[in-house]
Write a protein that binds this DNA or RNA. Structure first.
Lengths: 179, 179
DNA sequence: GTCTATACCGGGATAGAC
DNA sequence: GTCTATCCCGGTATAGAC
């Protein structure tokens, strides 16, 4: 419900009704509305961390090929994907309930992706002249942006095809151009 | 104010106070709150259309180099940039006040960028084996995503440097690899 | 075109019984 | 742990005077 209507657009009464309890019953568990939001964010993060772990367990060479699989999975969970996009936008303003959380999260995601790139460079399978942090920022940006366009207009944007296409772009972009 | 707090998070009273009039005075001009939103969106679009016109007036070869200039301009108008990000996220759900507007807008932006790529291909200055529409989707996605990361954490993400870096990526990506 | 006054609803949250 | 009842605020919008 946060994904569909945003944090502000969702009322405790709606959530309580859908959960089959009353409003005070809901507040008994989460204290207040912000507490509910944080609980929802934590649950979503569990999901994405599970994927990160899975990814780090793979061989570095296979990680790029895992991107479309990531997209396919997200497509099945459009609600969670939308939740993330909506909450990030609602958290852009400093001081909003989830702001610091998403700031930290992006810093950490950039660091993880940058590390992956450094590893690939050290192994000699990625060009030396790319700045790992800049490329990490760019990769996350593209994946986020593709997701937004897909969520906005799913009939026009095929998210799996788009991510597959971008994975090929990345392969050309990062690969050592040995003649 | 819509940029900072979103559509739902902004009250007519706040806007009226800031405008130096009363709430009914405000409604007299825009009918209702949704009318105010549409007026704001139209104003923002005027700005971005002015840029699009400027861009189309340039030689195709210079358009890629104009990207950082676009970023520099957006940096000076962080409010407008944030407005766009926030409103798009608030419009992801079909049926929301601005949904159709942003669906149409993205379709049109993708078409314009794809046309640019086709022109470059016809002129022989871009690789033939890139799908113009897929690449257009990817380019818009990256620019949007970079903007989001910058808005969320402006001290960590340098939007101008990031877009400059991406423009170089694009140049390598699109350029004909003549040996 | 702007105001005052007001209607009316829905929001989050609390008190206290069971 | 869940309920009923209630509080109080802030929201959009309208009526009607000036």
């Amino acid at each position: 419900m946060f994904a569909r209507s945003g944090y502000r657009g969702t009322s405790l009464a709606d959530v309580a009704a859908r959960a089959g309890i009353t409003e005070p019953g809901l507040l008994h568990h989460f204290g207040n509305k912000a507490g509910l939001l944080l609980a929802v964010i934590e649950r979503r993060d569990l999901d994405s961390e599970a994927f990160a772990m899975e990814l780090l367990g793979m061989e570095p060479s296979g990680r790029l090929r895992a991107l479309p699989e990531f997209a396919r999975r997200n497509k099945q969970r459009a609600g969670l994907a939308k939740l993330f996009s909506v909450l990030v936008a609602e958290s852009l303003e400093p001081g909003s309930p989830g702001h610091q959380h998403f700031v930290d999260r992006y810093r950490s995601m950039r660091a993880i992706v940058a590390d992956n790139i450094r590893t690939a460079q050290a192994a000699g399978v990625a060009r030396q002249d790319v700045d790992p942090m800049a490329k990490a920022t760019e990769i996350l940006a593209t994946l986020d942006g593709l997701q937004t366009q897909w969520l906005l207009d799913p009939d026009t944007v095929d998210i799996v095809a788009a991510v597959e296409s971008y994975a090929r772009t990345l392969e050309r972009d990062l690969a050592c151009g040995l003649p």
